[in-house]
Design a protein around this nucleic acid. Structure first.
Length: 489
RNA sequence: GUCUCCUUCGUCUAGUGGUUAGGACACCGGGUUUUCAUCCCGGCAACAGGGGUUCGACUCCCCUAGGAGAUACCA
């Protein structure tokens, strides 16, 4: 059997979408699983819709995810170029060839006529008017150099079938297929022409794409037939929908891969999650690294039905992956976010490395995504510290004086600690609870709010240890002054 | 409207004629506990509906409904 070659062929009309990434992933996994090639081709034949920066975003996002192509616009390859806009003459020659062999024809219908056709008959496609133009008329139109497009002459009274690798046989009556446009009046090809010509020329033998293409596949099959080429195998993978059905859009949350990168989702987690949208190995495996996905991927295990993107489950996966990272790995990962949050200086990022290395274990299991880091570490940095919940300083059922007493006793007890280990801190404070007569929860909450500024924090003893004696003492004093000033009740 | 595809817990899914229909996320309850988180235990919850075929249908066929896509000189 021939070497497997698949491709991902996005158009640079926007940043890479979640669904696009998932389709690219399946195409990539299938190629790698078969020791084949994965090609990146850019379909930029609609010059009016090209978005600045989209091409770079698509390539960067794919690389981030570990979806690496063997041939593409940036690295070239044996079938260069990989930008369709640079292949314009190839398509024109092929379209011309079909006109000459009588399989396609020039159509001079104006956009206005086509529009009117649609309003009169509903959406029923082109009426194949120019297909039957007399030779005289054709000649005079050509002599007048009327603008025209080239359309494929669909063989009537027949049906077109193909086998989808995921769905099986799909049959369409040819009368339901338009004499669709091959070459636009500006000389650029339509997707249909360009995609067929390129897939053939680039030796693609598996076309793996989103299932929104199912209904145009018969057109492509007919085009392959017109060229007398054998068509590749087709596999239409299900698309990703929003919760309410319909396309995923901004109002549901992030849709661009870029947004997930920026928020600090780990590529391993993202890929793992997205791979499971429409594919699964069995009823128990849920964690897969890329090499495992490659090893196990199978088109037969791809679902037919579209799936809903769950932000909650992505967060869960991401949390699991964050917890699997070593302290050192996590340090490298969060550094950019610490810089962005103003916690450390860009010029000297490793300045507080030892301190941060101590902090990480305390927050690791609480982190959902890296961008969330500042909500967990702000109070570890003096210049960001403030008591955000001053009223929480006084626990339920206790008075201001009780709180003052707790903090004063705590300051004294901490001062007496010779060894500042977690164990010693714990023993010390538990002893304090005993002697003071309040409940542990009440005492600890007051201390927590005093030293972390809020009622939610990592474990108290470990936090105290990491903060260090000096910081703890000065924060307790600060809290005392807050309590004594009349603001708190 | 027409054509095509799809349909198992709220969500992601396992299941290929005989299962108490399994797992995960979310949710609810309990445990651990100084808060939050983690972790552990338990619970809720599904075969869209109707006809067939069959000794027997979630599994096969047909119809209906619902959803998605196409119906562009966009991809």
């Amino acid at each position: 059997m021939d070497r497997v070659r698949t491709r991902f062929a996005p158009s640079p009309t926007g940043f890479l979408h979640i669904g696009g990434m998932r389709t690219a992933l399946f195409s990539f996994l299938f190629a790698r699983n078969n020791n084949g090639d994965f090609i990146l081709r850019i379909e930029d034949t609609d010059r009016s819709r090209i978005v600045e920066g989209a091409l770079d975003d698509i390539m960067d996002s794919l690389r981030w995810a570990g979806i690496i192509w063997d041939e593409g616009p940036d690295i070239g390859g044996p079938y260069s170029p990989y930008m369709q806009s640079e292949r314009k003459t190839i398509y024109q020659e092929h379209a011309q060839q079909l006109v000459e062999s009588g399989k396609a024809y020039r159509c001079y219908c104006t956009p206005e006529r086509l529009k009117q056709l649609r309003t009169e008959h509903g959406r029923q496609g082109y009426d194949r008017y120019c297909r039957n133009l007399s030779d005289d008329e054709k000649q005079s139109r050509d002599e007048a150099r009327d603008t025209h497009v080239i359309r494929l002459k669909i063989p009537l009274n027949d049906e077109t079938a193909f086998r989808d690798e995921i769905r099986g046989e799909i049959v369409t009556k040819n009368e339901d297929i338009d004499d669709f446009v091959l070459l636009k009046s500006d000389g650029f090809p339509t997707y249909h022409l360009a995609n067929v010509v390129d897939d053939h020329l680039m030796q693609i033998n598996y076309v793996i794409r989103g299932d929104e293409w199912i209904s145009s596949t018969p057109k492509h099959v007919l085009l392959y037939n017109a060229f007398e080429w054998t068509h590749p195998k087709f596999a239409h993978v299900p698309v990703i929908l929003a919760k309410e059905g319909g396309k995923l859009s901004k109002r549901h949350g992030a849709t661009m891969v870029r947004e997930f990168i920026n928020r600090g989702y780990l590529s391993d987690a993202f890929i793992n999650f997205i791979a499971l949208l429409g594919w699964s190995l069995d009823d128990k495996s849920e964690f897969f690294e890329m090499h495992e996905l490659i090893k196990h991927f199978d088109l037969n295990k791809v679902n037919k039905a579209s799936s809903v993107f769950s932000y909650e489950k992505l967060d869960w996966f991401n949390g699991m992956y964050i917890r699997k990272k070593s302290i050192e790995q996590l340090y490298e990962l969060i550094l950019p976010y610490l810089i962005k949050g103003g916690f450390i200086a860009k010029e000297d990022p490793d300045q507080d490395k030892d301190y941060i290395l101590e902090i990480i274990p305390l927050i690791q299991e609480r982190l959902k995504y890296l961008g969330d880091i500042e909500n967990h570490v702000w109070f570890f940095f003096d210049k960001h510290f403030e008591v955000r919940q001053t009223d929480a300083l006084i626990p339920k059922k206790l008075s201001k004086n009780d709180a003052v007493r707790i903090l004063e006793e705590t300051a004294r007890a901490i001062e007496g600690l010779k060894v500042f280990s977690e164990e010693d801190i714990e023993n010390c404070l538990r002893g304090l609870v005993e002697s003071i007569g309040f409940k542990a929860g009440q005492v600890f909450m007051t201390i927590r709010v005093a030293i972390t500024g809020s009622s939610v924090s990592p474990g108290l003893f470990e936090t105290i240890r990491v903060l260090g004696k000096n910081r703890v003492q000065s924060r307790i004093n600060h809290a005392l002054s807050l309590l004594k000033s009349e603001q708190t009740s």
